[in-house]
Design a protein around this nucleic acid. Structure first.
Lengths: 247, 247
DNA sequence: CTCCTTGATTGGTTCGGACCAGTTGCGCGA
DNA sequence: TCGCGCAACTGGTCCGAACCAATCAAGGAG
């Protein structure tokens, strides 16, 4: 299990334990014996069994869903979730990363357009505010399941033929390197937690309150010229990252 | 503002927008003119103003708190939050990172003990299950504000004098290097989202449902021997990470 | 046998109310 | 004037009810 090193008991040294947390702990204790994919009893049943209101059960379940331990689907029920996938945090494409995990990568194009960048975007791509930017937005799939939503912005002037040669269900990195001769030398990457908008949640097939890992990257070639700016939302309940630090 | 690159409008192309999200958007639109540290009107007042129930306002506020845009304090009110701090993701200590941001680092010792490791911990530190482990748990402070909770586990046999020479309000890395001659060569690091337990939330002065960035690290010396295993919870509403990727 | 419709079941949203826990300000007494 | 206690105010927890939206299974009709 991902990063489950030693933890302290969750109960505060002082102060009371909220009811919903007690319910959460009881549900958590069920998971190992239930196993991946197993349905939990319905919320109304759990509320009756545990002698609390449904709202209290919902709060407990909500936290376990946020943590990626449960998976809730309106109309179907709540299930024990799969373990998180660990992606490498480095200059490889999503395709390569997923393949390295023995999983099947995929992508679904949402948006393909040319637009006028705002000041910040123009600045990070070192282009003028009057130049155009190619915007590609794709849902990232692992074994057919949406795990991320990626928005890539590239300078139109630098890649005038991109939309002609690029197949949006394939790796953009591969296309840039093999078809357009781009060399990725380095990238600046930022990571933070974020929530998805209802639109993003819909595209990812999740609830809007699910915390995401928001990755924000600007890639550069060997001359230090920006290649792309990428904003990627990964489902925090499904994805983690790993990297090796060197002194 | 951290990683706020271009975003798509949050409204789904299909389907209705939940009331709480409309409230969220209205509140979000207030923030720029209000400015950091400004109190919002009380929940009950907002509910009356917006013509919704208090629960609906709470849900909207809750999401903005999760995202680090608002900061809610029981008994005091809800305030516009400070921007997130960006930490480097590399082999420097928390002290160095915070100082580099022009902020004042600090630590508060919570736990200092010697304990028997479980199988997983013993294995990652390359020690026998009958050996002891030093466990240090500290709250990490930035300008006096708790921003992280760090649990460090070190092999007792390797560092028999550690608890004698180490001042828990100072940098452990500095102590290991300067006082005990340790050389940090590399580390394996994992990042994922997590929720704090009520205890952890209490120590961090936050609410339990606040998403955290959970960092899990094992550091090694130049001979590849493990130095420490560290589990750090950072407040997702306050902290992000940055790194440079090289091809 | 296949497809469509309906009803039951599931989780998601919203409401209003009550109560709890933490904070702050004001008034009164020493 | 200062300190303490109380009341009002704030966000946090919990309840129950109603309604909405998605899913699924069973039955009926073609």
């Amino acid at each position: 299990m991902l990063a489950t090193g030693p933890v302290r008991d969750g109960v505060p040294e002082h102060g009371r334990v909220p009811k919903y947390y007690a319910v959460k702990a009881r549900l958590l204790a069920l998971l190992p014996e239930l196993g991946e994919g197993t349905p939990l009893p319905p919320e109304r049943e759990l509320a009756a069994d545990y002698g609390v209101s449904r709202a209290t059960v919902r709060q407990a379940i909500s936290e376990l869903v946020l943590e990626g331990r449960l998976s809730a689907h309106q109309g179907r029920g709540t299930f024990v979730a799969q373990p998180k996938l660990i992606h490498p945090l480095d200059l490889v494409s999503y395709t390569e990363a997923v393949r390295a995990m023995g999983r099947e990568p995929g992508r679904r194009l949402v948006t393909s357009e040319e637009l006028t960048p705002d000041g910040e975007l123009a600045e990070s791509l070192h282009i003028g505010a009057d130049e155009k930017v190619i915007h590609l937005e794709r849902v990232l799939l692992t074994d057919g399941e949406p795990t991320g939503l990626e928005s890539t912005y590239l300078p139109s002037r630098r890649f005038p033929t991109l939309l002609d040669v690029f197949d949006p269900t394939e790796s953009l990195y591969r296309c840039l390197q093999d078809d357009l001769g781009v060399v990725f030398a380095e990238a600046d990457e930022q990571i933070e937690t974020a929530l998805a908008s209802p639109r993003e949640a819909q595209l990812l097939g999740t609830n809007p309150a699910l915390p995401m890992l928001l990755l924000h990257r600007v890639s550069y070639d060997a001359d230090g010229a920006p290649i792309e700016r990428v904003r990627t939302l990964y489902r925090g309940d499904r994805i983690g990252f790993a990297t090796k630090l060197r002194g």
